[in-house]
């Protein structure tokens, strides 16, 4: 029964939409978690401790990684098949189509930027926190406790280059999700003329909230690092 998930075009899109939905829910949670760091150092570190190398956090990490890998691999399979279907001879003249979003035509490129940002993010944080905990270390190379996420955020975003890199990453994420979220409903068949404006509005609002939440932490910690609001 499940073979249609690999050998039919609609099945493959179903896989993309389900893994995409899962990843959207995860980053929504991640954004909400990050906002705690702006409010309370102790509160954020409590969450980091809770999500350390405990068995449930490790299981969740493996499932999350599997979601990313499947979404990524399917994206390349779909793109390869689509390029083949398009043929070798391209149009000499191309023109924009009315109502077609730029993001929808560039999902793979945006996705690659998002994955690139994810790799940098994992080097900055995961490799210095959960990975160290798995390896049995209590401190990372920077000398911070492996559950001291707040200190790591403050350290990372005190560097303006990191802030810019993360903002570029968030911008790519905004474009990717602004199409991806409503497209997910379309691929599942949960859309119609009445719901298109609502779904697109939901996708834009949800994506904007996620990106603003992430950006607020990066910019907020950079401003704090300048020491211009000691009383904050």
């Amino acid at each position: 029964m499940g073979t249609f998930l690999t050998n039919s075009s609609i099945g493959r899109k179903l896989v993309m939409s389900i893994t995409g939905a899962f990843l959207v829910l995860f980053i929504t949670f991640h954004m909400a978690m990050n906002l705690v760091a702006l409010i309370s150092t102790e509160g954020y570190n409590m969450i980091c401790e809770f999500l350390g190398a405990n068995w449930y956090a490790l299981v969740a990490t493996v499932i999350l990684a599997a979601g990313v890998v499947v979404h990524f691999v399917y994206a390349f399979i779909l793109t390869f098949q689509n390029r083949k279907a398009r043929g070798n001879v391209r149009y000499a003249v191309t023109s924009g189509h009315k109502g077609v979003d730029w993001a929808s035509q560039n999902m793979l490129v945006l996705g690659i930027i998002v994955i690139g940002g994810l790799a940098i993010h994992m080097i900055h944080f995961w490799s210095k926190m959960q990975l160290q905990e798995i390896m049995g270390n209590h401190e990372n190379a920077l000398g911070y406790a492996v559950t001291d996420g707040s200190a790591l955020i403050a350290y990372t975003f005190s560097n303006p280059i990191n802030v810019i890199v993360y903002l570029v990453w968030f911008a790519a994420l905004w474009f990717h999700l602004s199409h991806g979220i409503w497209s997910m409903f379309q691929s599942l068949g949960w859309a119609n003329q009445t719901w298109y404006p609502r779904l697109k509005c939901l996708a834009t609002a949800w994506t904007t909230l996620i990106v603003l939440g992430f950006a607020a932490v990066a910019i907020g910690f950079y401003i704090k690092s300048l020491g211009c609001c000691a009383g904050c």
């Binding site: 050998n7 039919s8 075009s9 609609i10 493959r12 899109k13 779909l78 098949q81 689509n82 083949k84 279907a85 398009r86 189509h97 009315k98 109502g99 077609v100 979003d101 929808s104 035509q105 999902m107 199409h179 409503w182 497209s183 379309q186 691929s187």
Partner: peptide, 22 residues
């Protein structure tokens, strides 16, 4: 119809909406 469409080598829909526009 979907099986035949896939068999004939048509691509996967990524919901760009260009088809509707044209």
């Amino acid at each position: 119809m979907v099986a035949k469409m896939d068999e004939l080598g048509f691509g996967n829909c990524t919901n760009t909406g260009a088809c509707e526009a044209e």
